[in-house]
Design a protein around this nucleic acid. Sequence first.
DNA 1: TTGTACGCGTTATCAC
DNA 2: GTGATAACGCGTACAA
Lengths: 372, 372
Amino acid sequence: MDKKPTVYDVAREAGVSIATVSRSLRTPNAVRATTRQAIRTAIDRLGYVPSGSAQSLAARRTNSIALFLPTIDELDSLSDFELATVDEANMVIDRPTHHVVARYDSLYFDTVLRGCELEAWRQGLSLVVSLGMGHSDADISHVVNDVSGKVDGIIVLARSIPDHMLEALHRRRPLVMIASSPTAHEGEFDLVRVSNRKGMSAWWDISSTRTTLPESLHDRPGRLPRQRQTLRGFCEALTLRGLNPAAAPIYRGQFSQRTAFDITSTLVEQDQLPEALICANDQMALGALTALRRAGIAVPDRVIVTGFDGITETDTSNPRLTTVKQPMLELGRAAVATLVKRVDTPDAPAMSTELPVTVLLRESSEGVLPDA
Amino acid sequence: MDKKPTVYDVAREAGVSIATVSRSLRTPNAVRATTRQAIRTAIDRLGYVPSGSAQSLAARRTNSIALFLPTIDELDSLSDFELATVDEANMVIDRPTHHVVARYDSLYFDTVLRGCELEAWRQGLSLVVSLGMGHSDADISHVVNDVSGKVDGIIVLARSIPDHMLEALHRRRPLVMIASSPTAHEGEFDLVRVSNRKGMSAWWDISSTRTTLPESLHDRPGRLPRQRQTLRGFCEALTLRGLNPAAAPIYRGQFSQRTAFDITSTLVEQDQLPEALICANDQMALGALTALRRAGIAVPDRVIVTGFDGITETDTSNPRLTTVKQPMLELGRAAVATLVKRVDTPDAPAMSTELPVTVLLRESSEGVLPDA
DNA sequence: TTGTACGCGTTATCAC
DNA sequence: GTGATAACGCGTACAA
């Protein structure tokens, strides 16, 4: 493993010119079979790998795109990592701490990433991923600048990098933003997103014939946009059906399974249980389900329960939970597809793609399931 | 947004030479403050971004590393992605299907990725991520080859790339492998991993004074290594304490919450409940917990329950679940740290780092908690 | 402190 | 078919 071999080395080894080597890699048909074979041999005798940098430089495109994801957690441990084999296991007495679990968000980003990768792969693109922003602006713009130079275009998730940097970034590189709700950047650059309002509307059909209780949405910093959207969609649906949104009781479950459990239990005790529990996320719905099961209340016969998000646990709960699945994978794919288009036609007007949610009808709302 | 501006454009705009522009970016102190300022102005008037390709080419290093992750799911939807705004929500009647949920694995990879990113960020490296392998060998080697050319080194998770490609890859680029169990590649190249046996041993201490029932490990294709390790560690721990592994009943919970629920319920009905349920993953432990709660059996007073993996749900279950957390984030960080070392000193002997698991003692095994 | 000129490894356009 | 050779955009001795 001396110096990295180059085309010159391969050319010499195979007794041809560098032009032929290059050709045999890019347009194999334009090269005689025997020479091609000689070159192949030389290549893997030497362990030659074409320099991506040189290729990109010559071709004026990197065939790479960048993806910026927000990160909420794990950002403090900035000490040097000590490389050492430790012979024992750590043992920690882990007392309850009522922290908000950021894992909740990660589930999304993870899936978006998969979507991006899937589509990038299909398009023959490499994906440069950056998360762990949330540092100083200076650091961020340094990283963003660095990465920008290595790619043909950029995908940003909402809130992954500060808004005030977006415009400047957009002026330097093709940019696509993935947002879960309307943003201030409407029409400014390409947008891919999902309408939570439509999701709520559709999902509402599940229990439209019943009195409802939306279990909803504690104001958590940084998550307001989605919450508002969801809530508004819910109210809209109510109104459309001639119900007064203000009349539907709304409880704030803080997105927490435990809190939802407590609220539901209390409702049961006070005999105030409505005919449907419409929960703003799956965790709360699962909590409600548990409370109802413990109280011996039949779901969906006595109460319908629905969640929101489509986390995997909803498929194994008892009963399985009707929920609304966000098209996270599709968001990723759409973003890449959009970016590719944008790179090809830089001057086209900004596109905006809106993806539908999927309502998964399951046993927790069986009462309104069509007889399939 | 005409043609991308280059150093030459900036130099002309600022009335200096390209060398000065370059310097003002890399060694600002070597440039007079006023010229530096002029250059800054020119740079953002033009929206100049240094070409990563050219930089890498000139510097002979890319400051990028690649990460290969395995993917188990989502690999079939290879149709073109249709960019269109759909105005309705999908509605799906989702009947139960007893598929194995690959999400289980994803949780790991996601965290490893975060670890890599975290450390890469600190080291000023870009991270090129590839998953979605599981295609034809030809496709894989094409992607691998392509990516190799763009990076200084590569991190592979076990089973992300076919074993027979690893050696060749290693001969071309610095390579670090993250494995959750011993592999055939011992000493061949750099390795970062976690010992599940030690994890099991440590964790065993939790309930060492009681009769135990390991709830364990259905043979699922592709996951055998970890399972065997875990099981062996468990048996070792038993033996160390003078117990006969063969005498400890082992039930196969298929890694499924539901199955574990059923098994536990059955044990209760048949009055065969042991004093501890040692589950091979958290999902099963949660299932057991639910069954016990429903049966009105006190945890941990009557039975101790422990899980394995440290998924977030274990922190919100009732009671919270004692479990063994795999150091996934640290694996990622260690891998990057190792790779950086390797790139700096290509000829050093292969290193092997083994990371400790963390046993999280919580209420589901409160009986044996030290009085903290 | 600043400018000149060459090299980095490929691709692509010519001739041959 | 194959071989010279000029870009590609930047870093960096070496000069000035």
